[in-house]
């Protein structure tokens, strides 16, 4: 028996809650972190959309925003934080560096994209992306949350919520 069976009627409410009060793990690494702070501050004010910024602990977070260049020294930490987050969890790769290494691609200490380390759901382009772009990316995450719960709701009764699988070829 999955807990979903008992909570079938409640899932709609959980979905509604998670979707409309996204708590991102404020994972500022580099330049994008400054734009991420601006996203939470007065002009863009992502809190209007329920996106309460600045959760410092991965255990309270729904979505991880990887904002900046991931280096080989940082990659094990990123992986550890990802695994500390509770299911269901989503990852936004913010900016060119986290997406592909960006301007720092092909350098000795830079990981060419955070998707070598953890699975990514939404990529936000830009160097750095404007706050509006990040908000748009987070709204895409809301759509993914919808899809995620619908998919799991239609599963057979014995089904359980599964973690998004990590690509097998990864170095981790």
């Amino acid at each position: 028996m999955s807990y979903l069976d008992e909570l079938r009627g409640v899932v709609t409410i959980i979905k509604w809650g998670q979707k409309n009060s996204l708590w991102p793990l404020a994972f500022g690494i580099a330049c994008c972190a400054i734009e991420m702070m601006q996203t939470g501050a007065s002009k863009t004010d992502a809190e209007r959309l329920g996106m309460l910024m600045q959760r410092a602990s991965p255990r309270q977070a729904d979505v991880m925003i990887v904002a900046g260049t991931v280096t080989k020294k940082m990659a094990p930490v990123v992986r550890r934080l990802y695994e500390q987050m509770l299911e269901p969890k989503f990852v936004v790769s913010m900016g060119a560096c986290a997406t592909s290494g960006g301007p720092f691609r092909d350098l000795y200490d830079v990981v060419d994209g955070v998707d070598d380390v953890i699975p990514v759901d939404v990529y936000v382009p830009g160097c750095p992306p404007r706050p509006e772009a990040l908000v748009y990316g987070l709204m895409k995450i809301q759509e993914l949350i919808d899809a995620y719960y619908e998919e799991n709701q239609n599963k057979p009764v014995s089904g359980k919520l599964e973690a998004p699988s990590v690509k097998p070829s990864l170095s981790g």
Binding site: I29, A30, G68, T69, T71, K73, M74, V77, F104, L107, Y108, D109, V110
Partner: peptide
């Protein structure tokens, strides 16, 4: 430190 060592000097 060094978690954001982006190799500016090698670049």
């Amino acid at each position: 430190i060094g978690y954001l060592h982006r190799n500016h000097e090698k670049l």
